[in-house]
């Protein structure tokens, strides 16, 4: 099972909560917008990634199952 995060850059307004909840896979750029890692999420980080997805007020993040 490989899962990665997808960001909808149009929906995203740089709220930034995602980077707090999923430090392992998201950092913010100097303008406050998330830089989302495109590599598959490790199983032990999946719970953090899920939290970020559900916390985004713009519903801009989603988990994509590539398997």
């Amino acid at each position: 099972m490989t899962i990665h995060l997808r960001l909808d850059p149009i929906a995203c307004d740089g709220h930034g909560i995602c980077a707090e909840l999923f430090l392992e896979g998201i950092e913010l750029d100097e303008w406050g917008y998330p830089i989302v890692s495109t590599t598959p999420i490790q199983a032990r980080h999946l719970e953090h990634a899920r939290r970020a997805v559900f916390a985004c007020p713009k519903v801009a993040l989603s988990l994509v199952d590539d398997s």
Partner: peptide, 12 residues
Amino acid sequence: GQCGPCVFGLAS
């Protein structure tokens, strides 16, 4: 004007 990196990044 829709995506942060485009709006702020290109301006910068």
